[in-house]
Design a protein around this nucleic acid. Structure first.
Lengths: 136, 136
DNA sequence: GCCCTGTTTAGACATTGTCTAAACTTAGAC
DNA sequence: GTCTAAGTTTAGACAATGTCTAAACAGGGC
């Protein structure tokens, strides 16, 4: 069973507040990889008085505390991902949608062998189209 | 021997002009992965009357015509790369510098096997530090 | 020379994000 | 319950990056 939102925040050193919970409720439970403006729009539906600055502050705080990851994959789109475990990304060229790809479904080798480079983390970024229907 | 700049532009369907050549002279011959503003600053040193809009137009045109690639790797930084062949990227966390990594120096397998995804292109994005001295 | 087409320009505008100072809320001490 | 200090939120100003527009400006073909 998943810990409650206030527990998740507290366990990462974040003091819960109504605004932070509202942001967390949306952003920790989406696969949509939303931008900051999209998060603001969504949260405002249920919490119309929340300010833009608070949403930005909160997202940055969550990233800093490690419950969210910030991604910049396609041009000019910074986006948030609640999946902080290592994984890859697939970008649908038709729609721009970003999908997570499980770590184990791709083999990457020899990354550690690059001379002169101390690679601390990596991911494969893929671009293409989602297949229609069940082909493959 | 490398074709002259006007030939490169023409062979990609771009009509050469003084401004386009000035942008090309810098951006096609750098490994620095500059942003649009950096390109503007650099080009202006030798060509002080060039406008910002022209630099943006020209870079977008070059990307569209395939002599330049646009990258968005680290947060909020859109950057240009004259290397349009497949290759990977390494981002130095200390400096933010982006380095090209040759395609063959990393093995990636099973990318084609992902079900539901038709992957048309991919790259490995690595983050870490450059090693000091000759270790490894 | 004169058109026509394509290019360049300055500045207005849009979008995304940060900063500031004041107002507000909370937790804990009393 | 009240007080205070610390932390949080707010609106709006500001900054950085990028696009758009309308006018000015080549340059080639006639």
């Amino acid at each position: 069973m998943r810990p409650s939102l206030p527990e998740i925040l507290r366990s990462h050193g974040i003091q819960p507040s109504a605004q932070r919970l509202a942001v967390a409720a949306y952003v920790l439970d989406t696969e949509a990889h939303p931008s900051a403006e999209q998060v603001w729009a969504r949260v405002r539906e249920r919490f119309p008085m929340i300010s833009r600055a608070t949403v930005y502050n909160t997202l940055n705080l969550f990233v800093e505390k490690g419950i969210l990851r910030q991604l910049a994959l396609s041009e000019g789109n910074v986006v948030f991902d609640p999946n902080v475990e290592p994984h890859h990304h697939f970008i649908d060229e038709a729609t721009g949608a970003i999908h997570d790809v499980p770590w184990d479904s791709v083999d990457v080798r020899r990354v550690g062998d690059l001379k002169g480079l101390d690679v601390r983390e990596y991911q494969v970024v893929m671009r293409g189209r989602k297949r229609t229907r069940g082909e493959r």
